[in-house]
């Protein structure tokens, strides 16, 4: 019990690291966007874990006064954060589509090379 008491936080760190690595190291812009989504869901895990309580029920009030409930506040915060992260993803995808249409590629290094070329030609 105590051994795995922080397991959720380890999982959060691992998921976050996988996402962050994909964001930084991957060339493909869509992969970066997916990595960002992963990075953010990792954080959600940390928050939701804060709401968990031994022997609790979902925070929907029942008539029985003996019931104890999980903390609803992190749930609310994460509802907001989920919406924010999907909104960010939508804007990121729109930018990626724009880049694909103007550059013909969504690989970051190829885009950078194309920019370099146009600069050498003299704008």
């Amino acid at each position: 019990m105590t051994l795995l008491g922080l397991f959720n936080h380890w999982a959060f760190v691992i998921i976050m690291m996988v996402g962050l690595y994909a964001i930084i190291a991957r060339n493909n812009l869509v992969k970066k966007i997916l990595g960002l989504g992963l990075f953010q869901t990792g954080i959600f895990l940390m928050y939701i874990t804060l709401g968990v309580r031994d022997g609790a029920a979902a925070p929907i009030l029942q008539d029985d006064p003996a019931v104890i409930y999980a903390n609803p506040l992190p749930h609310v915060l994460i509802l907001t954060a989920i919406v924010v992260s999907v909104s960010t993803m939508a804007v990121a995808l729109a930018l990626a589509i724009g880049i694909r249409e103007s550059y013909g590629t969504v690989e970051a290094d190829e885009v950078a090379a194309l920019d370099q070329q146009s600069q050498e030609v003299g704008c």
Binding site: Q40, M46, A81
Partner: peptide, 27 residues
């Protein structure tokens, strides 16, 4: 200049990482 798309995308990635770091700290 089509570069605006790239700089906006890069800013989006970095800005989101920054905001996520702040979110972690608040958590």
């Amino acid at each position: 200049d089509r570069k605006a798309l790239v700089s906006a995308f890069n800013y989006l990635i970095l800005g989101s990482i920054g905001a996520s770091f702040i979110l972690i700290a608040i958590g």
